[in-house]
């Protein structure tokens, strides 16, 4: 398999984004065209005149990745119909959580509703990292960011993140999934399904950020694993209306593995450090309650 994203990009040491992108792009041997939202991944892989991309790649703006790939895919449909191109090409869009949960959600919803055949991959590091760690709609309750810092009165982000994967699933698209790069077999299998789905597909991938989450970059894969094993980032698929647990999440649900305590997750990252103080126990309880409720809801969906 030829390299599709080369070395020499300027992402931080220990960044999970190129790991996720590599795994996603390993999932098809068809030619791919990539669209990229504004953000770390775009800036760091495309500084003119050097590109880390070995495949056709386009970046337009922050909110527009799904719309841009819609245009590319429409051109493909049109030119193929007119007999001007013959290759069987796959289309993939990468965006961070700011680009996906927040500013680009309308474009993504529109693109999925229109039914373009493309896969959207959210590199979810739970904040706007490129601009220096600001809260997004994906930032977890209690996390300290530069726009929801933990202070003496307010302990980090007050709100729970939106459940984007379920919002996307509500479009009743052929395929959506949550994945984590530590379980690369699971991630690649999901990306392969997404690439071959007969319509739009969506992967929401936990993408740890050493700078934003404040941990040693050597632990990036460990951190992704911890997100799954604590239940903070369950692995599952939504395929033609059916919900299925996968990987460690499935093993936990089947009782073959213990779900690790929430405290392991909070202690591992500087962004949650303040929550360990006794005065914020109610916040931790709230996170725990939300975690349990989301977990129960997911189990219910998979049993339907």
């Amino acid at each position: 398999m030829p390299v599709r994203l080369t070395e020499g990009h300027r992402l931080c040491a220990g960044c999970a984004e190129p790991i996720v992108a590599k795994q996603v792009l390993l999932a098809t041997d068809k030619p791919v065209v990539v669209a990229n939202a504004t953000g770390c991944f775009e800036v760091s892989t495309s500084g003119f005149p050097q590109s880390a991309w070995e495949v056709p790649w386009i970046h337009t703006a922050f909110a527009t990745t799904a719309a841009t790939i819609s245009g590319v895919e429409s051109a493909y449909v049109s030119l193929k119909r007119k007999g001007k191109i013959s290759e069987d090409i796959r289309f993939v869009a990468f965006g961070g959580d700011g680009a996906t949960y927040d500013i680009g959600l309308q474009a993504l919803s529109g693109a999925i509703e229109r039914g373009h055949r493309f896969m959207y991959v959210c590199l979810n590091n739970e904040a706007y990292m490129n601009t220096g760690i600001q809260r997004s709609g994906a930032t977890q309750r209690g996390a300290s960011t530069t726009t929801c810092p933990s202070g003496t009165c307010i302990p980090g982000k007050k709100e729970i993140p939106k459940d984007l994967t379920k919002i996307i699933a509500a479009h009743k698209l052929p395929y959506a999934a949550q994945a984590s790069p530590h379980n690369w077999k699971d991630l690649i299998a999901k990306a392969a399904k997404g690439f071959e789905a007969n319509g739009p597909s969506f992967l929401n991938i936990i993408t740890p950020c050493p700078r934003g989450w404040r941990y040693d970059g050597a632990n990036t894969i460990e951190m992704a694993k911890l997100a799954v094993e604590t239940g903070m980032w369950p692995l599952y698929e939504y395929e033609n209306g059916k919900w299925t647990l996968t990987g460690e999440t499935k093993r936990i649900a089947e009782g073959k593995m213990e779900r690790r305590p929430l405290a392991d997750w909070l202690k591992a990252q500087g962004r949650f450090k303040h929550l360990l103080a006794p005065e914020w126990k109610d916040v931790v309880d709230d996170i725990q309650n939300n975690l349990d409720a989301s977990w129960d809801e997911l189990l219910r969906l998979t049993k339907l």
């Binding site: 390299v3 080369t6 070395e7 020499g8 990009h9 300027r10 040491a13 892989t45 495309s46 500084g47 003119f48 005149p49 050097q50 590109s51 880390a52 991309w53 070995e54 495949v55």
Partner: peptide, 22 residues
């Protein structure tokens, strides 16, 4: 070629040696 913001040559980031960051 370089008149628009399009990079004509793929994979040129390899020329940038990030090993010096280590």
């Amino acid at each position: 070629s370089t008149a628009e913001d399009v990079i004509v040559e793929p994979g040129t980031a390899r020329k940038y040696h990030t090993g010096s960051w280590r």
